[in-house]
Design a binder for these strands. Sequence first.
DNA 1: CCGTATCCGCGAGGATACTG
DNA 2: CAGTATCCTCGCGGATACGG
Lengths: 125, 125
Amino acid sequence: MMKHAYDVYSDRCPTRQVLTRIADKWALLILDLLRAGPHRFSALHRRIHGISHKVLSQTLKKLERDGLVSRTAFPTVPVTVEYALTPLGTSLTGAVSAVAHWAESNMDAVAEAQRDYDARQDSGG
Amino acid sequence: MMKHAYDVYSDRCPTRQVLTRIADKWALLILDLLRAGPHRFSALHRRIHGISHKVLSQTLKKLERDGLVSRTAFPTVPVTVEYALTPLGTSLTGAVSAVAHWAESNMDAVAEAQRDYDARQDSGG
DNA sequence: CCGTATCCGCGAGGATACTG
DNA sequence: CAGTATCCTCGCGGATACGG
């Protein structure tokens, strides 16, 4: 029973573009952050260490276009903007956060694997 | 109660490197494929449409170094090589597959969101 | 505060060819 | 079949500056 005809393994399938967008360091971190609630642009920028102004803006725009994130501007002065998850975006955050958290939870095991691997290389393994 | 001192939001934290590696289109597809069982190099190459020989090789090497994937060479002629998930790798595939599958399951909603967004741009929204 | 435009360096990654 | 090396391009993404 086919639920959909999409195939992310295919070069031509539009799902590949979507995957490219969400299989991205910055997008993952943004989506994970928004899980806790709406955030302002500057708040996201402050929390996500290392992302540039421009790339944060670009990434948010793409996520908004894909319907994962909503953007709300309040007519204050200067303008206040809030980004939040849409229901569609929320449906992805479980998986996204799991990936992000995995890195933290398994860092020790990864580091050990790297040491083993490198040692094997040194000894001509 | 802190379970670990790692913070993926920090630029300097080693988890950021790990995230960078797994938050990657090709790595996600490889890990998802290996979920079904061991695969040979050429099989992976055939299934993952659009990946180059070189990048597949590089990505596998990194995943192997991080302890997510194991590499087994059989002394046939020509040599046969099998890639498989390690237990560590298996612990990540749930989240990884969820992300990959999400793209397929929600493609229609994403496409609709894109149409809406683009229409709003055209009408000077 | 938020966003976009411009410039530009750098490295990911594709094509190709060669080794084992 | 599996893997590496070389070359080269192309666009991501950082810095900066300016507009709203």
